[in-house]
Amino acid sequence: MAGLREISCRVVSKTVRDLFIEVNYRLGDDVLDALQHAVDTEDSELGRYALERIIENAEIAGRESLPLCQDTGLAVVFVEVGQDVHVVDGDLYEAIQEGVREAYSHGFLRKSVCDPLSRENTSDNTPAVIHADIVKGNKIRIVAMPKGGGSENMSSSVVLLPSDGIEGIKQHVVDMVAKAGPNPCPPVIVGVGIGGSLEMSALLSKKALLRPVGEPNKGDDRLSTMESEILKEVNSLGTGPQGYGGRTTALAVHIEMMPCHIASLPVSVNIQCHVARHGETII
């Protein structure tokens, strides 16, 4: 049994701050490997040209501590708080917001959050969107995910008919990627959430994006099969890198699922551009 443990809000703020700066400058090895594989298999010359520039960009950004993309995102934070943690020196949520504020200021990141109606910028990239879970243990796990607007704009939640089934879900996801076309900066990663309630399907689709690129769903063979089938169909659309044509429209399809109401089939599709940024720290 883990004993009760105190964790200071100051540590939380610093962790959040460091994570958002780091992931905005450095692309994960899983993404880079997937991009390199795409260069090797892409048969469109313009598509390869785009993929090579994307890899070159990651090298420059990492070397010079420059943001990979000018859209440094809406700050999405997943936080898992162990039930044996006692948070001290302040308010946990405010500590996360402070970490975001410091990252976007000290890290020279763009502030991209505004009032939805007046469109007035909040000037410090807060509020972050925080998803908190209570878990076992005496640690706090923090996942930082800056999410770009272009790919989020091509995402959606719907409730299909139970009779639509697996084929209906696959068709819907492929249609979403086809409709998105060049807009979300392909090659994309397609996060799919099936089941739960409407909002839970959206959350599952976002959590699906946190898996290492191309790692299949391990819990359910039906899902890993759907992932590879949808990926194949999506990469037959012709859209290709940046919509310039080619076979690399998506690097991966990740599906997460949970049971839903007997009358419903919620499906969310969360599209992530190739600048798939996320990182985690366990305190």
């Binding site: 785009a50 994307i54 070159e56 960009n57 420059i60 943001p67 993309c69 000018q70 060049p182």
Partner: peptide, 12 residues
């Protein structure tokens, strides 16, 4: 079209 997400490269 400019390639989306190569903003460090374009900055230079």
């Amino acid at each position: 079209g400019a390639i989306g997400g190569v903003a460090a490269l374009m900055s230079r």
